[in-house]
Amino acid sequence: MPLIEFENVSFAYDDTPILRDVSLQIEAGQLVAIMGGSGSGKTTLLKLIGGQLRAQHGRVLVDGIEVSRLNEGELYQLRRKLGMLFQFGALFTDLSVFDNVAFPLRERTQLPESMIRDLVLMKLQAVGLRGTADWMPQALSGGMARRVALARAIALDPQVMLYDEPFTGLDPISLATVGQLIRELNDALGTASIVVTHDVAESLAIVDYVYFLDQGQLVAQGTPAAVRTSTHPFVQQFINAQPDGPLPFHKPAPPYAQALGVQA
């Protein structure tokens, strides 16, 4: 049974449709990328899984449970199975690195402090930042903050990992480090992982499967190898970074000459 399953899911803010008829399945141990331009509905997709938003049509299933049917208490139960890495890490700025990673353990478990200490150091070791345990988040670089946030996200050994733009604003070395960590943690923990991103090169290098999202619809999918040789025009435009294509450079507008008043 797939850990995450979307069945014909649609979602709209008021009258603006964000997702239209999206169906996908992700198994345990699978690392999947969802790619698309800004505003294509990628982040909304993650929020539907986390239950921060509720689908209006179709079903979102996490581990066989339909998310949009849950009440607040059940939702919090479900979220214990989820780990999420936010775009800029979202570390708690008033807590040290150690306390940040310890936060979910202290809040959600009854473990004794000595065991929490061991677990935190293990998680920090896994992301290579045990040396920064006493630092405050402000002292970390962007890449290090992302890795600490990753350690925090895996603190409770989740079954599903969600990554919201994990590569944004990183230098090439940090970017490769984070990418590699995502892959390694996925294999080590056997989680189902979703990476929402528009970073083509890095994600194609690490993921098992790719979905392309355009204006709320899944337009193409496949393994990285298949995607690279795909002739689908949107995929071509996206992975070759062409400014114009199916995703037009110009937003729809009345004719230029008319707007400038040149034409009678």
């Binding site: 921060q52 919090y76 979220r79 214990r80 979202a90 570390l91 936060f103 946030a149 925090r152 969600l162």
Partner: peptide
Amino acid sequence: GLMKATEQLAAMEMMAVN
């Protein structure tokens, strides 16, 4: 406000902490 803007509140919610 700053905790909200930097997604710290959302992160907390995703860790099942209200």
